[in-house]
């Protein structure tokens, strides 16, 4: 923290940020959050002062100078006063300049990740976030260790999304065709809400997930456990996990309900009618083909909109998903 930032923090005058967020802010759980909260409260109290001044004077004048019997005409007073007008131009100008400089400095800190950051790749798609760790593991929640700078490299598969974690005070638009970056260092163990903040269609408000901040050592334990779940769990359970984590559940229900794609309840082993009128039995081969080449045999009544998972799911994973489908009776 530079000297100027320290001075500015002092200027905030005792309105040190409240870790619970107080009346205005959500819980604060990152190193960036207190700096933002301090500035927020500085602007808040400055605004309260000026608001009270303006509205107070207005009310005072209305009460005092209201036209009433015996006071029909205004008292003489000047139409302008250069000294006064210069004062109320210059003082606000200086104050907003302070806010500007302070805001810019904190912004630079929020935008500059430390060199040794742990990197997680984030993919936004309608209407889901996926997090890819350096070892290739993909998860639907963002798991991170506490007190470690985390750098997010984000991209979108379709339209613009925005990655927003209120508790960390970070937000970044994720634009298709380019990489968006953000970073944070979590300071409290717990689960924090992630929102999509840029409107992206039907499921925009449900495009949420969580950041799970682990205690020291907890992240490594979690990683060893999940990274190997294909080998450790029974295939059907591993398949269920993949089904939820890799975006299948966005379009396919498992309870018979309608969605973008056909439900997978009671499908495996039964005949399926295709868009071209033919019929096919949903066996392992069909499931595999539908995952890798979704447009090859589209089920009647549905649009051919499913993206291919070629190169995104390994053979073992596809097998696990097929095993999971067998349990959906």
């Amino acid at each position: 923290m530079s000297l100027t930032t320290r001075l500015l923090d002092l200027l905030a005058g005792g309105v040190q940020s409240n870790p619970d967020g107080g009346f205005w802010m959500p819980e604060a759980a990152s190193t960036g959050a207190p700096a933002v909260d301090n500035l927020f409260h500085f602007i808040l109290w400055l605004s309260v002062f000026f608001f009270a001044l303006i509205v107070g004077l207005m009310v005072l004048f209305v009460v005092r100078y209201r036209r009433r019997a015996g006071r029909e005409e205004p008292e003489p007073s000047p139409n302008h006063n250069v000294a006064l007008e210069v004062t109320w131009t210059v003082i606000p100008l200086l104050l907003v300049f302070v806010i500007f400089v302070w805001g810019f400095k904190v912004f630079l800190d929020l935008n500059t990740p430390p060199a040794n950051s742990y990197e997680v790749l984030v993919t936004g798609q309608k209407w889901k976030w996926l997090f890819t760790y350096p070892n290739g593991h993909v998860d639907e929640n963002l798991h991170v260790p506490i007190d470690t700078p985390i750098r997010l490299v984000m991209t979108s598969e379709d339209v613009i999304h925005s990655f927003y974690v209120p508790a960390f005070r970070i937000k970044r638009d994720v634009v298709p065709g380019r990489y968006a970056k953000a970073w944070f260092r979590a300071t409290k163990v717990g689960e924090y809400q992630v929102f999509c903040a840029e409107y992206c269609g039907t499921g925009h408000s449900d495009m949420g997930t969580h950041v799970v901040v682990h205690e020291p050592g907890g992240f490594e334990r979690w990683m060893t456990e999940v990274a190997d779940f294909l080998n450790k769990l029974p295939p059907a359970e591993a398949g269920e996990r993949l089904f939820k984590a890799r975006g299948c559940a966005q379009c396919h229900t498992v309870d018979g309900g309608a969605s973008v794609g056909p439900t997978l309840k009671g499908v495996f082993g039964h005949a399926v009618t295709l868009a071209d009128g033919k019929s096919v039995t949903a066996d392992e081969d069909y499931v595999r083909e539908s995952i890798l080449e979704p447009q090859a045999k589209v089920v009647a009544g549905f649009q051919p909109v499913m993206p291919t998972y070629k190169g995104k799911l390994k053979d073992q994973e596809i097998t696990a998903i097929a095993e999971y489908m067998k349990t959906l009776k």
Binding site: E119, L121, V122, T123, L130, T132, G136, V138, V153, T155, S156, E157, D158, P176, G177, R178, Y179, P307, T308, G311, K312
Partner: peptide
């Protein structure tokens, strides 16, 4: 072209257009 979005795992540095 959309499908060709660099999949997660590519560590691109700059704002590359797809």
């Amino acid at each position: 072209a959309v499908a060709a979005t660099p999949p997660a795992g590519v560590n691109a540095e700059e704002h590359t257009l797809i």
